[in-house]
Amino acid sequence: MKAAPFEYSRPSSVAEACELLTRDEDARIIAGGQTLVPMMAMRLARPTRLVDIARIPELAFIRDDSDAIVVGGATRQAALERHASLAARLPLLARALPWVGHAATRNRGTVGGSIANADPAAEIPLVLVTLDGSIRARSTRDDKVIAADDLFEGPMATALALDACLTEVRFPTWSHARMGSAFQEISARHGDFAYVSAAAQVALDGDGKCVACAIGVGGATAAPTRLKAASAALLGGRLDDAATREAIAAEIAALDIMIDPHASPAYRRRVAVTLAHRVVIAAHDEALSRTPA
């Protein structure tokens, strides 16, 4: 199980990386390599050139903006996991990260790599979609922002051009005093890609009414899905009633569920409802336990 031969470059800037990608359409970016290398070992991927962006300084950073945490594309998952303000500002991501592979893969795997790979069951893309984040992609042609909604197109498929480099990822943060979040997933083994995963972040007012709500499900559909209708429907409500589950179930009932050998579509649909509901309840309970501003 040895990779087919390829060339290797380690550019020192994004501009140089983009140059290399433009010159050779079968060149691929490698950062952490935790998904690409197994594919190459099995010769299911055969890039002619690897463009190693892991050590480009401008791609490895974590920045606390006022309304977001912005992460460089080649930032290691483990570095983000250890980021001091993560638990307070992006609790949903803080909860999701331990589910990403295993410690040893998070030590090498990058935030941008997980997003660009776009596995339907991957945790980081789900959080990005749920929180309505975005990425920035640069190529020799342009430098643009792509909203998470427009980014994920299907299993292992994104709107990212093949010659583009994902330079940063923007996870919006909320400033509500009464905020709660929850992340759950089910897989055959802990650390495997999930059959279904669910993420929720909610904010309540002093009265316990929902003032902000973001719910997403992964694994069930070809790309992570934000439950927009349910989230909207729950605004102004109390979240702890039957209506919550109904709103979630109604939206999931209309989704196109993925078909693969690991779990039946019926399972994925049912469990998506169950987990989405559970994370909303858990997020709600957490928010409720917080004192209003």
């Binding site: 089910i186 779990a263 039946s264 399972y267």
Partner: peptide
């Protein structure tokens, strides 16, 4: 006995 099959039978 796999997770999915188990849950489907229960459902």
């Amino acid at each position: 006995i796999r997770v999915g099959a188990l849950a489907d039978a229960v459902a």
